[in-house]
Amino acid sequence: MGDSTPLPNALVVDDEKEVADAYALRLRGLCEIETVYDGRTALEETEQRAVDIVLLDRHMPGLSGDEVLEKLDDRDYYGQVIMVTAIDPGFDVLDMPFDDYLCKPIDREDVREAVTQQCTVLGYETLGEYFRVESTRRVIAAEVATEDRETHDEYQETIARASELEERVRRLLDDAETLLDQFEDIGREGQ
């Protein structure tokens, strides 16, 4: 990812401060990292800003990682969750809505690779959503008068959503510029 391109946002959640801080250190240069030490703060953090990747410990006092995961799923959290835990998985994980599962202790490169992989997955999902929203916005822009567009609330929300999605794609994908340029090159308006 280039120097001027913003990095993906990662949230490291582990009640063991030293462990959380070690993962944050391992991700330096790969992500913008926020570190929290309990489940409630993790949920607050995902509500306050766009968090692309959550590295989540399962076993924490208070609100466990499993409970945080369930609440994120209930809230339709738009990001990827990597469980990073010393708890050996059993059949209970079959119904858990995480995107990757790493058992401690975890090698530095494995953490970086898992985060990179999940950023790519989220990036392409977001790119698809951007293409859908932006093509809709463009067809309306081409066919509806400016004054009508300016006063239409849903259209204004579509503009904001397209901008938000484009920003996230640029954060998540190394080849975002090429993919967005290819989208731009397609003539969507009639002759």
Rank of each mutant, 00 (worst) to 15 (best):
T120H: 13
S64C: 07
V19P: 00
S64L: 06
V84E: 10
F131K: 13
M83V: 15
V54H: 12
K104R: 15
E67V: 01
D100A: 15
V13I: 08
Y124C: 05
D107C: 10
R188G: 12
G190W: 05
A160K: 05
R168F: 05
C103S: 14
I53S: 05
Q182S: 12
V84K: 03
R168T: 03
V144R: 05
D100F: 05
L55M: 13
G39V: 00
D181H: 11
D107F: 01
D110S: 10
R138V: 00
G2S: 14
A42W: 14
L172G: 07
R75D: 09
P97A: 13
A142W: 11
D88L: 14
R75F: 05
D14G: 08
L11H: 10
G79N: 06
A114D: 08
E109Q: 11
G29W: 02
T85A: 08
L179A: 08
I159A: 03
R28A: 10
E47I: 01
L69W: 14
E70N: 09
Q118W: 00
D88N: 15
G29M: 04
K17G: 03
R132E: 10
V115N: 07
C103P: 07
A160L: 09
Q117P: 00
T85S: 15
Q182H: 03
T46N: 01
R75E: 13
D99H: 15
V133D: 09
E125L: 13
F91E: 08
V111E: 02
V81H: 05
Q117Y: 14
A86E: 06
T158E: 11
R108L: 03
R138K: 13
F91T: 05
L43E: 02
L102G: 08
S163M: 04
V54D: 10
T116D: 14
V111T: 10
G62M: 07
R188F: 01
V111H: 04
G123L: 05
D92T: 11
P61V: 00
L72F: 01
H59R: 15
Y124K: 13
D110W: 02
A42C: 04
D74H: 12
P105Y: 09
A86D: 12
L27V: 06
L56F: 11
S135V: 00
A141D: 15
G90Y: 04
G128F: 09
A162D: 02
Y37W: 00
E32N: 11
V68R: 14
Q80C: 13
E184G: 03
R132C: 00
T41F: 04
T41M: 05
E16Q: 10
L69A: 11
M83C: 09
T116Y: 09
E18I: 02
R108Q: 11
R26W: 06
D76E: 12
A24F: 05
T41R: 13
T158S: 12
D74Q: 15
D153I: 07
M60A: 06
C119E: 04
M60P: 04
A145W: 05
E157Y: 04
G123W: 03
D14F: 10
V36G: 02
G65N: 15
A176G: 13
S4R: 08
L43A: 10
P6V: 02
S163L: 06
D73Y: 14
L27N: 06
M83E: 12
V12K: 03
S163N: 08
A24R: 10
